Simulated scan of single mutants.
Amino acid sequence: IEKESKCEIYSLSSTIAGKHIHGETSHGSASIRGGKSHAVSERDLYAVLDTAGAVPLPKEQRVIHVLPSTYKIDNQDGIKNPLGMSGVRLEANVYVVDAAENAIQNITNCFQSCGRNLDSVVFQGLASSFSVLTDDEKELGVCLIDMGSGTTDITVYSKGAVIYTESLPLAGDRVTLDIALAKRLQSNVAEMIKVEYGSCMSEHISTDEMIELPVISNQSDGRNMRRQELAQIIEARYDEIFEMIKKKLEAKKIDFLYGSKVVKVVLTGGSANVHGVEALAEQVFQVPARVGAAQNIDGNIEELEGPEYSAIFGLLAFHHHHESWQKKIQNTVSKQGIFSKMYSFIKKTF
């Protein structure tokens, strides 16, 4: 990676996803150091977030994120950034994300087998949100649905803070399997026709439009398939995934209505690259939807502008926003920016 990107790497991180991911709200408090009416320092922030993140967990789970929502200093609440403000006691409302210890260890082992240490793991849905969502979307209320191959990861923001996360074991691979089983195709062939001819809106596909399927070994002639039939298979599975997400959020009293916690849906990930996915999402959630890809990327990297690269760029952006990380990369990265320097490596690898 260092050779391809021409960067010296100081820290290595990985995304993580799976049904073992859990999240919950929490609250913590701590005295502001220095006595009465002393200004809040970074040390005070770390202390209050440490207490807020100390939630009871099964021994097989580990906290990976403590995401602040709002702070309170004495009797003043609703504070977004308390640094420099004076008071006696600091409190924090946070969202805590935890993951399975063995899943983290497996990722760690992969890095160690390459002679490197893993510094941190980031929930995939959260990583993607850093590259895809705008500040306005986070403030107004947005549900990010990151549809990969093995999992669909959900991250909900409201008033600028994360209020819900979820990782579902249904995604693009399941859609490919549906096609393969329905038409008795090899999985690579099913994936190919899904990508090339797939759609989530069967009603928009003509009944006369045909797809020529590849010849398989025990047949002398190729077969045809109606493209509308392919769309019906894909639409059924995507509709199931969206309905599942909607029910889970409704169970948490997160509504998809104007003036409520979520007023928009943003879809990203490789499996969001399907015709009609926005229309189906709008039909299910009854709010505007868009397909999102990484934003504000420096350099001429058009080949990496698809939603399938959102988590990769989001992982970089996640750490780029941390001061200690930012200081280190400023010493080694040219004015082109970290994203441009990583282009060559990502292009060849993915």
Score class of each variant (00 low, 15 high):
I297H: 02
L118R: 02
M192H: 14
S344L: 04
V48M: 12
V265N: 04
D74I: 06
A272I: 03
V132T: 14
T349F: 04
H275A: 12
V333K: 04
G125C: 06
L45E: 05
L49D: 03
I79S: 07
T108V: 01
M192N: 14
L257Y: 11
N75G: 03
S69D: 14
V175C: 10
Q228H: 03
V284M: 05
V142I: 06
E42K: 09
E60A: 05
E191Q: 14
G18F: 10
V156T: 00
V287G: 09
V284P: 03
L133Q: 05
V156E: 00
Y309I: 02
Q76W: 00
E302S: 12
I233Q: 02
I9V: 15
V48W: 09
V121C: 02
G160S: 00
E8W: 02
R237Q: 11
H22M: 14
M342I: 07
E323D: 13
Y238T: 00
A30N: 09
A100F: 06
E209P: 04
E229I: 10
A171M: 08
H38N: 15
V266D: 08
M244G: 14
K248R: 15
I211Q: 09
Y164M: 00
P214V: 12
F285I: 08
I216R: 13
K36N: 11
A281Y: 06
V277D: 01
G160K: 00
P82F: 07
K159E: 11
A180G: 13
Y71G: 03
E303R: 09
N81F: 04
G84I: 05
E91G: 00
Q112K: 11
A180V: 03
N296R: 13
V277A: 15
V333R: 01
M342Q: 05
L280P: 05
E101V: 04
Q61S: 08
S202R: 00
F130C: 07
A171Q: 01
Y95L: 04
K138I: 05
K247H: 09
A100T: 01
S217Y: 12
A279S: 12
A103N: 12
E166M: 05
H204M: 07
Q330N: 14
K348T: 07
L316C: 07
Q336E: 13
V175Q: 02
A317L: 08
N331R: 13
H27I: 10
V215H: 12
G53L: 11
S199A: 06
K328W: 00
Y309R: 01
